[in-house]
Nucleic acid binder design. Structure first.
Lengths: 262, 262
DNA sequence: CGGTTATTTGATGGGAATCAAAGGTTGTGG
DNA sequence: CCACAACCTTTGATTCCCATCAAATAACCG
């Protein structure tokens, strides 16, 4: 099954099992591919798109702009995601969608999706589920922004991104590429770029991560999770597909305690 | 059509049009009614419910508990809502659901919902849409908690609750019942009860609202919206059904400016 | 390379948290 | 119907985390 490397199938299989038939149906959906540069708009708030897009390569972000120009990022999307699937049934966009890095997107007409869904209730349910996981991530986003300290937010965010990337095969050996600026992370975490920078410095100093350019290396997964109070349940990853290259170290590294307290 | 007063139908018709047939199908779903007292758990994090519940009367809240006992409320639900509809396809609860006030709930088996959905793709799409609106509210919740000042959060929250109650006929003449303690609002807004109290005092002083016990009276809808920078788009209410008893006053009441600036 | 964009570090200030305690309200049982 | 307890609201004083302001590198890119 070499074609299982197709991003949407990888992604969906990380959260649900597919029959060969269903894989076939998905593979044959008409998709028009288009490449975007970094920081291009895909859909704007207020629009009523007639497609949804599958993110094939690159990172995208959903955000709202405030009256004074501040930006709150509501979610980040990685290959395999369908960042505006909600527009299938919510006809007016209530937020923006834009690329963060150069992206390849596959656009699928709502018409085709609706037809597929009417014929394949099981696939419809899986896509519904995809949007529900999206909502689950939104909920954790609320908690992160509402209740967590700057340091916890940063660590929690890195945990989430790492696991989501791992689920689609984009993180190996504790390493992944995060094509985000610190200002991007600030808008995601409701912090300033200054605070983001300071927290990253801390996490590095504490030996939890290394970060050079856009390459993130998780040095101490257990410590990172603990200092974030991270619980991956909300990602609703399929346990069988979670690669978990990162065993939680049993060591009481002392550092983790320090991490939690500061 | 007197039965249109049935809460689920009122609610769904506030966001989508139903055929008589569809109304029929919905009315005949097996529902088992159960009454709850104030502050009772309905579903706990970690459980895998086999029902979803329709909130017929009362208020419910969804929340996560943190390691130290803090609570972040992720959403409040009003009659007509189906607060755990997501459990239909996300089998493990990633948060708690509990009553805020005494409630009457109607439980519908997932089995029955799935059967209905497989047979009625249009109803399935409407229910999907219900969960998507839920997610849209989560997104605005992120913005509120992430970017708004204490005063804006409070005003924004009141705007949202008022419109949602109005959409199901539970707000008239600018008045509605909000059976929440200030501590509840604090957990929703990621503030302390002290701050909530201070902001409520401010909003009263500025003549935007009156609040006696659990009865909220909106005195200046335009001013309240402006001081919250509230834009109702994210609620995805059906424009035809939005009652809007509250015309936005064209007066530049001076107060609104003061409201925005402080 | 020069110019823009991104990261890093230091100094200062403010908005809301925290701490503390006094009033109100509600409900229950004597 | 009063009294007491539990809960909720209100107000004041103090603290602290992170935003803000400022400026010096460093990295990227055409």
């Amino acid at each position: 099954m070499p074609l299982d490397n197709h991003p949407i199938i990888r992604k969906i299989e990380s959260i649900a099992r597919l029959s060969d038939e269903e894989r076939e149906v998905l593979r044959h959906l008409p998709v028009s591919i288009r490449d975007y540069e970094r920081r291009q708009e895909i859909v704007r708030e207020g629009e009523s798109p007639v497609h949804s897009c599958l993110l094939i390569e690159g990172f995208a972000s959903r955000f709202k702009l405030l009256e004074d120009g501040r930006r709150q990022i509501l979610g980040l999307h990685v290959p395999g995601d369908i960042p505006d699937l909600q527009s299938l049934h919510l006809h007016r966009m209530d937020h923006h969608l834009a690329t963060v890095s150069p992206c390849r997107l596959g656009f699928i007409r709502h018409h085709d999706l609706n037809e597929m869904n009417a014929r394949n209730p099981r696939i419809a349910a899986i896509l519904w589920r995809v949007t529900l996981i999206d909502a689950a991530i939104h909920r954790e986003w609320v908690v992160r922004v509402g209740q967590r300290s700057a340091r916890q937010r940063m660590a929690h965010f890195l945990c989430e991104m790492f696991l989501r990337l791992e689920a689609v095969g984009l993180a190996v050996n504790g390493r992944c590429v995060l094509p985000l600026t610190q200002a991007d992370m600030a808008d995601a975490l409701a912090l300033t770029n200054v605070s983001v920078n300071r927290m990253l410095v801390q996490l590095k100093k504490d030996g939890l991560i290394a970060l050079e350019g856009r390459l993130l290396q998780v040095l101490n997964w257990g410590g990172l999770m603990r200092s974030a109070h991270f619980d991956p349940g909300y990602l609703h990853l399929n346990p069988e597909r979670v690669i978990s290259t990162l065993s939680v170290p049993r060591v009481h590294s002392g550092d983790a305690g320090a991490a939690a307290s500061r």
